[in-house]
């Protein structure tokens, strides 16, 4: 079995017009950065991996995750984690309930709560479980969003301009934290960005689209 995320001859078209083509393997703990101007189809590429490709597009090729062909699986069965530019914490749930939502089912209430508390501690947010996500700072929200995703135990992590809303200082911090967590869990990371500093910090291969 090949560990990692494989984009096997992926080719996306819109109305018959070729948009994006990619054929790469991302090993566990590695980061592949996809760059290019907006509108070039970077986010569309990610939606092929998450399984949320809009109807207007067509795609050929296969997506393999740890050797498993996930091309035809519904989004919730793929174990593909994704972070967007916005934190997208569910506004109707507390910070703790957001994390519970992410935490894979199983275990009794006490054990689950302990897992959530531990996750919050891991990103220096101990005691934040009952807080309203809307009262958190941008950096705190980003950390909660990351932990929520990781608690779902994904096999890969996608980053869709994930640091785009943060100011420069915060951006570097959050970026370091995300990459460190992904490396610690040996997750293959596919990052879409238009910021060269993101690509540099990632340190992996860079693919530039639209040229």
């Amino acid at each position: 079995m090949v560990k990692g995320l494989t984009l096997d001859r992926i080719a996306i078209t819109k109305g018959g017009v070729p948009l994006v083509a990619l054929d790469r393997h991302i090993a566990p703990g590695q980061v592949l950065t996809v760059m290019g101007p907006s509108g070039v189809g970077k986010s569309t590429l990610l939606s092929v991996v998450t399984g949320t490709l809009p109807n207007a597009f067509a795609c050929t090729g296969r997506v393999l995750l740890d050797g498993r062909d996930i091309t035809r699986l519904p989004p919730h069965d793929r174990r593909v984690g994704i972070l967007f530019q916005d934190d997208l914490l569910f506004p109707h749930l507390s910070v703790g309930a957001n994390l519970m939502f992410g935490l894979a089912p199983g275990g009794d209430r006490a054990a689950r709560r302990a897992r959530v508390a531990q996750a919050l501690e891991e990103v220096d947010l101990a005691g934040f479980a009952d807080r309203d996500p809307a009262t958190l700072s941008g950096g705190q929200k980003a950390r909660v969003a990351l932990m929520r995703m990781l608690l779902a135990d994904p096999c890969t992590l996608l980053l869709d301009e994930a640091f785009g809303r943060l100011d420069t200082v915060l951006r570097a911090q959050v970026r370091e934290m995300v990459f460190a967590r992904a490396r610690a869990r040996a997750l293959p990371v596919l990052m879409v960005t238009h910021d060269a500093a993101d690509a540099e910090a990632a340190g992996g291969d860079v693919v530039t689209l639209g040229n």
């Binding site: 998450t50 939502f101 894979a104």
Partner: peptide, 20 residues
């Protein structure tokens, strides 16, 4: 994208509808 996140967290279509 809220739905995409919820699905990435393992929620099925019904879960996305009712819980989010």
């Amino acid at each position: 994208r809220n739905g995409a996140v919820a699905a990435a967290l393992g929620a099925g279509p019904d879960g996305v509808l009712w819980r989010v």
